[in-house]
Write a protein that binds this DNA or RNA. Structure first.
Lengths: 214, 214
DNA sequence: CGTTGTGAAGAGCTTCACAGCG
DNA sequence: CGCTGTGAAGCTCTTCACAACG
């Protein structure tokens, strides 16, 4: 999928992921064609926004008609680079790590967790969701062996930076971290933070606001 | 905490949560005072950004010196409305739900999960992390009894909308959902989406971009 | 003297409005 | 005729630059 435009807003990428989510529901429901207006309603955005977002990557619509749902979904996934399998390593096999290892949605969406790592000797050797837990020190060797490109951090916050170090040294270029702390990485490594508490804080703020208003 | 300004950008709220994260680390390290420049470096933002974000809520700094770390942290938490306990109900006691119920970081940050709900008869009555799993139909009764204000959805996507319905009917005003699907709510209810896949898609996109460039 | 708080300038994203086209 | 694709306008958020001040 060639990118038509130079710079693509981060916000656009985030919305494209939402469009995929909604389009896949539409496919399940058997909808063949959808207009930007209806898709916008389902995604809670402005119709022009959708058209502009898509225009960064090409022309996918049919004037006077709308978008073919399946085709559009395929095109967006290709634009995002999620029309392939990404092999991932998970570091930190605690409650959350185990839950993610058992979460089949990952495989379903092309993110295959093929390695599970922990530094706790009691966990090493344990089997979780068909994977043997391996010592974090062996990350480099395993990343090479299994062709892993993405790291997922589910350690406690105090161990997140060390896990990051191991992942970076192993040659990982992208990290998704669930640890509620900032991590430092070299410039060429991408980090995405999944932080429940940012969201909970946002909720708390909004709820407090409306309470105060009344 | 009185809000000085009328409208506060959503992005500001998100950053305030990051500042808290970093400030709490600084407290642990024993740092007493920090300038906007150093705090900005730790949060990977612009120093003016921090000063402007804080200015929405008041004046917390000392010119020529910087900010008292503990005091600033307390002020931000108060501004966000997280200087108190928020009682939460979790709906969907699967892998992820159980992991969150056992995640003590929630309690640590003032979000107490005091009710666990599921519609699976095999799960009802089971005890997870000291909580008895209760039938989702009894949400309304339990929300009133336990003074719950926030709902957390960890059901599979296809059951998220039903869970939302039960939560809304029970009088919940804020929902944090982990289900990878959009949910519809009345205007007065706030929803925050925790979606791993948005983040993974963003990673995939960035990794694909730099691969293509080379 | 050094750092904050803030008006003004700048950048970036969103929405509008309509030409273009199936 | 209806809906897309898109230049231009509008808006919001970010950064700059410096006066204010402990």
């Amino acid at each position: 999928m060639p990118v038509k435009s130079e710079h693509i807003p981060r916000a656009t990428i985030k919305r494209l992921a939402v469009y995929v989510q909604v389009l896949e529901n539409l496919i399940r429901e058997g909808t063949d064609v959808i207009s930007s207006e209806l898709l916008a309603k389902a995604c809670a955005v402005n119709p022009s926004q959708i058209r502009k977002d898509l225009a960064y990557f090409g022309e996918f619509g049919v004037r006077g008609l709308g978008y073919y749902v399946k085709e559009l979904n395929t095109s967006i996934k290709s634009a995002l680079g999620v029309d392939r399998v990404w092999r991932c390593a998970l570091v930190g096999v605690g409650n959350l790590g185990k839950a993610l290892l058992n979460h089949h949605e990952f495989k379903l969406r092309g993110f295959h967790i093929v390695g599970a790592f922990d530094c706790d000797p009691f966990k090493i050797g344990e089997e979780v969701s068909g994977l043997e837990v391996v010592c974090t020190r062996r990350l480099k060797e395993k990343v090479a062996e299994l062709g892993i490109e993405v790291g997922i951090i589910t350690t406690p916050p105090e161990r997140a930076q060390r896990a990051t170090g191991h992942l970076v040294e192993a040659g990982i270029k992208g990290i998704l971290t669930f640890a509620p702390t900032r991590i430092a990485v070299p410039d060429h490594v991408f980090v995405e933070y999944v932080d429940f508490f940012h969201h909970l804080y946002a909720l708390a703020f909004n709820l407090t606001l409306i309470e105060d208003e009344q």
